[in-house]
Amino acid sequence: MRPTRKLLTLTGSALLLTGSVFLLPTTALAGVTAAVPCTEAALVSAVNAANAAGGGTITLTARCTYTLTSAHGDDGVNGPAGLPVITTPISFSGNANVVARSASAAPFRIAQVSSAGGLTLNAVTLTGGKATTVGHNNGGGVLNFGAVTLTGSALSGNNAVGLGGGIHSSGTAAAATFTSSTVRSNTAGQGAGIASAGATLTLTSSTVTLNAATTQPGGIYSSGTSTLNTTTVTANTPTNCVGSPNPVGGCVG
């Protein structure tokens, strides 16, 4: 006689994997954040939605390069940005992701962070940004008036006619924090890697290298407070940090 199979009603959801049933509470499924599709439009919409919600985390599609073909942010003062101006605390949760300005697009920086905003990058590279607007040509990758935090991320191949090819932080309320991150192969009039004008700069276990400026320093320009912990600043031209208005402790040459 065959055993009787009974179908039980489960309060939650069941996943059938290799013959086994795992129960996930319904509330756990509701908390899963879907990754933003690998398109420019989807990324721009996600930033707009996060701003409208007062901030949040944007999960990126793993290993996706989000290519920006036009500017989507402009505060009417500082020139165009590829992403909408970030006015709230927003985190990009990445996995080998790139946000890049298209080589055929008109010049614009990748991101601008307002004084009330915050941009956190985890495993994300920003590249190809160009800040060329006359009088507002600082910050090729990022123009920061708020808080920028990079972890396992990179600013690479960005350009600013003025200060800060990779990033320009401006004002005493602004802060940029790099951990296990790289600022590489950016160009600018001055401070091609990083420019921190009256702002706070902290680098830990990071690298600033191969950045090139017209006027020294090529690596890090700081007129605020800077702290380097186990960080390498090397092979920048015309100097790494010599010529910075304020000394950059731990930076040689």
Score class of each variant (00 low, 15 high):
Thr59Ile: 11
Leu17Ser: 14
Leu201Met: 10
Ser222Leu: 04
Val113Gln: 02
Ser104His: 07
Gly152Gln: 09
Ser153His: 10
Ala116Lys: 07
Thr187Phe: 01
Leu203His: 04
Phe92Gln: 08
Thr61Val: 07
Ser185Gly: 12
Pro84Thr: 03
Ala46Pro: 06
Thr65Cys: 13
Ser169Tyr: 00
Arg5Pro: 09
Leu16Ile: 03
Gly135Trp: 00
Pro238Ser: 10
Ala174Ser: 13
Thr207Val: 15
Ala105Gly: 07
Gly94Ser: 09
Pro89Gly: 08
Gly128Val: 00
Asn95Trp: 10
Tyr221Met: 06
Val148Asn: 00
Leu24Pro: 08
Ala154Gly: 13
Val32Trp: 13
Ser153Cys: 06
Ala35Glu: 10
Gly19Met: 08
Val233Asp: 08
Ala81Lys: 02
Gly19Cys: 11
Ala100His: 03
Leu60His: 07
Thr27Arg: 10
Gly128Leu: 06
Ser185Phe: 05
Gly55Lys: 04
Gly250Trp: 03
Thr237Leu: 12
Gly219Val: 02
Ala173Ile: 00
Ala30Gly: 07
Thr132Gly: 03
Ser169Asn: 06
Asn211His: 10
Asp75Tyr: 01
Thr67Ala: 15
Thr125Arg: 15
Pro245Trp: 01
Ala81Ser: 15
Thr61Tyr: 03
Asn144Tyr: 00
Thr88Leu: 02
His136Glu: 12
Ala34Glu: 08
Asp74Val: 08
Ala192Ile: 09
Thr151Arg: 14
Ala35Arg: 04
Ala96Ile: 00
Ala235Gly: 06
Thr67Gly: 03
Arg109Phe: 05
Gly31Lys: 14
Gly56Lys: 02
Arg109His: 03
Val208Glu: 14
Ile90Phe: 09
Thr214Cys: 01
Val21Met: 12
Ala106Arg: 11
Leu10Cys: 10
Pro107Gln: 02
His72Ile: 05
Asn137Lys: 03
Thr231Gln: 07
Ser115Thr: 08
Leu15Trp: 09
Val242Glu: 05
Thr132Gln: 04
Ala42Val: 07
Ala173Pro: 10
Ala116Val: 09
Val113Lys: 01
Ala35Val: 10
Thr204Asp: 15
Val242Leu: 14
Thr200Val: 13
Gly218Glu: 06
Ser205Lys: 11
Val183His: 04
Cys251Gly: 12
Ala41Ile: 14
Arg63Lys: 14
Leu60Met: 08
Ser102Lys: 04
Asn240Ser: 13
Gly224Leu: 02
Ala52Tyr: 10
Leu60Asn: 09
Val77Ile: 15
Gly171Tyr: 04
Gly171Thr: 00
Gly157Asp: 10
Ser153Leu: 11
Leu17Ile: 12
Ala49Trp: 00
Thr149Trp: 00
Thr202Tyr: 02
Ile110Gly: 13
Thr204Ile: 15
Ser226His: 01
Ser93Val: 05
Val142Asn: 04
Ala147Phe: 11
Gly54Phe: 05
Ala96Leu: 13
Ser115Pro: 01
Ser181His: 05
Asn211Val: 12
Gly198Cys: 05
Leu7Ala: 14
Thr26Lys: 08
Gly191His: 04
Thr182Trp: 09
Ala147Glu: 03
Asn138Tyr: 00
Ala52Arg: 11
Gly198Phe: 06
Thr125Gly: 15
Gly139Gln: 05
Ala116Thr: 15
Gly31Asp: 14
Leu201Val: 00
Ser45His: 03
Val242Met: 09
Thr61Leu: 06
Leu43Val: 05
Ala34Trp: 01
Asn246Ser: 11
Ser153Phe: 02
Asn97Cys: 11
Thr237Gly: 11
